[in-house]
Amino acid sequence: MTIQIQTTIPVLASMNLDESVAFYTERLGFIRAGQYDDYAMVMRDGAEIHFWLCSDRMIAENTSCYVRVASAQKLYEEFVEKGLAVDAPATRPWGMKELYVIDPHGNLLKFGERA
């Protein structure tokens, strides 16, 4: 019998958990799932992203997270409506239509769908 991996949850660096939670809830449509002194969690549509309190911005600036989505274009439109300044999704050579968002601490989020 093999053990099935059910899901993965990225844990991103945050210089300020309140700022991270605010950005992800106000701009990206997540909901706050929990917050502690040095750890926070947000959720949207069954996906989770966690944050750990970090004092080294270089860690966040060298981290990325890939999120599969049904429509990068619709997500882009939603984010723009919420005041986020991002470039429109683009189709990449590897066959994915992707929308890139950099959070306030430098983490790169790639929202992608098959092109």
Rank of each mutant, 00 (worst) to 15 (best):
M1F: 06
M1V: 05
T2E: 11
T2K: 14
I3S: 10
I5Q: 11
Q6E: 15
Q6S: 15
T7Y: 15
T7G: 13
T7P: 03
T8D: 13
P10M: 09
V11C: 13
L12F: 07
A13K: 05
A13C: 01
A13H: 01
S14R: 08
N16Q: 07
L17A: 13
L17R: 09
D18E: 14
E19M: 02
E19T: 10
S20G: 14
S20D: 05
S20K: 09
V21C: 04
V21N: 05
A22P: 00
A22S: 13
F23G: 06
Y24M: 09
T25D: 06
E26P: 05
E26W: 06
E26F: 05
L28S: 03
L28N: 03
G29Q: 01
G29D: 02
G29I: 01
F30L: 10
F30K: 10
I31V: 13
I31L: 11
R32W: 00
A33I: 00
G34C: 12
Q35L: 01
Q35G: 00
Q35E: 13
D37E: 14
D38Y: 15
Y39E: 03
A40T: 02
M41I: 12
M41D: 07
M41S: 10
M43Q: 15
M43F: 11
M43C: 12
G46Y: 14
G46K: 07
G46L: 11
A47C: 11
I49Q: 10
I49V: 15
I49P: 08
H50P: 05
H50G: 10
H50R: 06
F51R: 07
F51C: 08
F51Y: 02
W52N: 13
L53P: 08
L53G: 07
L53H: 13
C54R: 06
S55H: 14
S55K: 09
D56E: 10
R57E: 14
M58T: 14
I59N: 10
A60M: 13
E61L: 11
N62L: 06
N62W: 02
T63V: 10
T63A: 15
T63I: 07
S64N: 15
S64M: 14
S64K: 09
Y66T: 00
R68K: 00
A70D: 12
A72G: 04
A72R: 02
Q73N: 06
K74W: 04
L75W: 12
L75V: 11
L75F: 13
Y76L: 01
E77F: 00
E77T: 03
F79C: 10
V80P: 02
V80M: 07
E81S: 15
K82D: 03
K82M: 01
G83C: 02
L84K: 02
V86F: 04
A90N: 09
A90W: 00
A90T: 12
T91G: 11
T91M: 12
R92W: 09
P93N: 11
P93E: 12
W94A: 04
W94E: 00
G95P: 03
G95N: 05
K97W: 01
K97M: 00
Y100A: 08
V101R: 04
I102H: 09
I102D: 00
D103I: 07
D103V: 07
P104Q: 07
P104V: 03
P104C: 03
P104M: 03
P104D: 14
G106V: 04
G106D: 03
L108Q: 07
L108E: 09
K110V: 14
K110D: 05
F111I: 07
F111R: 09
G112N: 06
E113G: 05
E113V: 05
E113W: 04
R114Q: 13
R114N: 06
A115V: 02
